[in-house]
Design a protein around this nucleic acid. Structure first.
Lengths: 201, 201
DNA sequence: TTGGATGCTGTACAAATGTATAGGAATGGC
DNA sequence: GCCATTCCTATACATTTGTACAGCATCCAA
């Protein structure tokens, strides 16, 4: 690899087999969980054979790491898409908030994968949640330096608030939908109940 | 089986091997997930051999169902422990709410199992969430008939509220704790942030 | 053109795991 | 005491799954 693949799209039509494998893995890992996803299923979905997965990623664990790295990248790209010197004027904080929310809404697989990651792999250092927390913290610090966000609370508190507000609702919504479904006949006309998640100290 | 085991305790010291297997399965399923828990691990934890699990439960799936049934039973028992003709006077609704909260706080395995069940097995009929919803609905109807609870909202809405308030907080708390942990140094003196989950229409 | 690197396939294999089964030990009714 | 039933162990087996590897195809630089 020379310098960096020239603006390689994370999703698209004419991807390298390596990228297709990573994308297929994200989808399947998100839907069924990592353990319940045989590499052969990933291979089939990506239109390749198991051997190629091993060739590119070595082990399933490495593939999982690549998937998680891609997720972190997607968050980072989304945040970067709303630059701090907002020519678009107005509230950078709200803008980034919306951008991330839109990204998550458009990528159910990311949400599903995250939900599982928080479940199964909590406690291990250097994992996905750690990296996302770090990303959030960076962002908070950046905004603080620019004076765009108050320093009344600690960075930690602000990170918790951001992540839980964003992710919490998405994680619990399946439960709500599930129950609402059981009583579909009653709730028929009305919209499904929505969740509000807040953090208190 | 004659009529019903005479007040067989769900937890205790001198349990039958069958019960020990079920309890060990709950603990391990909760901690690692059903798929990631070999029957041999359950056997070891219960102090028996794999063969006996097969003898008593036939398949892993049946064992899982027994575990879920035991969970539903525990909810039902907890609710029953606060009878509707409350000699203890006062608010039956609040009393049951507290009883369930206490039970969940005392049984982390139940919470963990539920968290996984909602994640992994959402969408299947006749599963745990359905049964718990049903149990809640029964309770709501019972309290309605006794005039202890308003009929302003639909039963469905009330069930969603009950279950999400109770379970939502518990499900999300690991995420909060996890992130709070990353910033442990900052948040040191202060208590970990707490969640509030509400449902809006 | 040639040679080496890279992408890719098909097959093979060992470990893990759910399930089946043969048989021994314990237990309770007669 | 004896028999049937239940409880329980040990072993075996088929399947699944991660990984290894040998070899063919493709491509690019020299």
């Amino acid at each position: 690899m020379a310098q960096r693949a020239p603006a390689a799209p994370l999703r698209g039509d004419d991807l390298t087999a390596k990228a297709r494998i990573r994308n297929a893995a994200l989808d399947l890992f998100a839907e069924h969980g990592v353990d319940a996803t045989p590499l052969r299923a990933v291979a089939t979905a990506a239109g390749v054979t198991v051997g190629l997965i091993v060739h590119h990623y070595g082990t399933k664990e490495t593939l999982r790491e690549a998937v998680e790295l891609a997720i972190v990248e997607r968050f980072a790209d989304t945040i970067r898409s709303v630059p701090i010197d907002g020519a678009a004027g107005g509230d950078v904080v709200a803008g980034r908030d919306h951008a991330v929310a839109d990204m998550l809404a458009a990528s159910p697989a990311v949400v599903d994968y995250l939900r599982r990651a928080i479940l199964d792999r909590s406690g291990e250092r250097g994992d996905l949640v750690s990296r996302l927390s770090e990303l959030s913290a960076q962002q908070v610090n950046e905004l603080r330096d620019a004076g765009l966000v108050s320093a009344r609370h600690t960075v930690g508190e602000q990170v918790v608030t951001i992540m839980v507000r964003q992710l919490g609702r998405l994680f619990l919504q399946p439960l709500v939908d599930r129950i609402a479904d059981e009583f579909a006949d009653e709730l028929d006309g009305t919209a499904a109940p929505q969740l509000v998640v807040t953090v208190s100290r």
